[in-house]
Design a protein around this nucleic acid. Structure first.
Lengths: 243, 243
DNA sequence: CGGCAGCTTGACTACGGTCAATGACCGTGG
DNA sequence: CCACGGTCATTGACCGTAGTCAAGCTGCCG
């Protein structure tokens, strides 16, 4: 697959992401070894396996999830364009979770073996990498707080509000709608709810006129209201570095 | 407070931690600016505030927790000797959670402003820092899976098994007991349970003879059994870098 | 048209929350 | 030295949120 060169990377134009210096663009250009397409439903990285690659998502959506021994599954979070996946395996040896495509995904491919080079030659990029890890960690902390403290309605509002905000910041909102290619069972596994209760909770949110979700499209008529229900502060999505 | 020099750091001797090269010791020696004591109950870092410092825990135990607007609290995880705290604030500007001492803590103090120097001069240490972030992230993922998928008994077994293993690996097991200076309400807030149900769950575990916990001391008669109840693989605690 | 996956709805159940009373322990002050 | 009050843990009674089981429904694809 031919690679789009980083200089004209469509993602980096988005306000959500930090600008690169020309130097950084050049480095990433050399760091990137290609692109990969994963079909909807495909596995990007598999729990328990190591991978010679890490990836930045260019397009498409996915999930990170942990499989328990007894078959239960927990979706750790959702993966959106701009997210880096595979860093764990790159650092720790093997993936501790599975990354799966929910819609077709286009990925930017980096070679794990060259990660050390990044640390020794490009402290700025190494810093960004650590920064990305810290943001991820913060987000997981918020997720823990949500699962630990909030009830089903709040959890659902929280998840949808986060998705809505993120996709909006990515410029994926068209006609007041964002794409939402997840199934209810994935939401359920992300929020620690049963599929049945997920369905009921969604219908409550619909009847409250907080969301409209059908045909893989989500519309939020009153963002403030949903954020309030989710008890999320009305802050802006912070600009983040891109790998 | 006079500082113990890194060359004879008591923590680094423990098997749990990676060895430093003499070079690294020298660098850390210069990176460390002092030590600090925080009394039991004291706040180390406060959610929403920034901090000019980051810390490595030398002794003592604590919690990281998120305060929700309505007063609910979620304990994200427990903090043990060897853990690094304050990296989030150092990178992202302000703390997203609070770090509080559960017992008296002795901390190694580093200056945030010199973090950049670490990245530019010491790629090995920068790599370790990122590594620490990745491990933390993995652990939070496991926590999410626990809160999302497991019932009260499994959660409690999981938490106590993790604490038991970690403290054992730290060499803090004496006479088959590890110190456990947390209150039940802290366990409750960590596991998303009410204090009442936490007490009941603990008494179930006791009656199953899985744990003995009194007077801030925890004893696990049959580690395998507890790990099995917690559905935790019987792996060794991985050696980790120390900052 | 048939079959399957995903969603919805109803009926019942149970895990864990809430409220409340009591007990154990400890530090403080009369 | 003991009484008092505070914090933390325990226990009982009751209740509610969310899980389970099961039956239908919808839409899609072969």
């Amino acid at each position: 697959m031919e690679k789009t060169d980083c200089a004209r990377c469509p993602l980096r134009r988005r306000r959500l992401f930090k600008d690169f210096s020309p130097d950084e663009v050049r480095f990433m250009e050399s760091f990137k070894i290609g692109e990969e397409l994963v079909p909807a439903g495909g596995i990007v990285l598999s729990q328990g396996e190591s991978s010679p690659f890490l990836y930045t998502v260019l397009e498409g959506f996915g999930t990170r999830s942990i499989l328990l021994e007894d078959g239960r599954r927990q979706v750790i979070n959702f993966v959106f364009p701009g997210d880096l996946v595979g860093l764990q395996a790159a650092l720790m040896g093997e993936m501790q979770h599975t990354v799966q495509a929910a819609s077709e995904m286009r990925l930017c491919v980096f070679r794990r073996a060259r990660l050390w080079e990044l640390f020794s030659d490009r402290p700025d990029r190494a810093f960004d990498l650590t920064w990305i890890g810290a943001v991820e960690e913060h987000f997981l902390g918020e997720t823990i707080a949500t699962l630990g403290q909030r009830d089903a309605l709040e959890r659902m509002a929280w998840a949808l509000a986060r998705i809505w905000r993120r996709l909006s910041a990515l410029g994926l909102r068209v006609n007041g709608q964002v794409p939402l290619p997840f199934r209810q069972s994935e939401l359920a596994d992300a929020l620690g709810l049963s599929v049945v209760h997920t369905s009921r909770t969604l219908s409550t949110l619909r009847s409250m006129n907080m969301i409209h979700w059908s045909k893989q499209l989500l519309h939020v008529p009153d963002e403030e209201a949903l954020l309030a229900l989710a008890k999320l502060p009305v802050e802006i999505e912070q600009t983040r570095p891109l790998m």
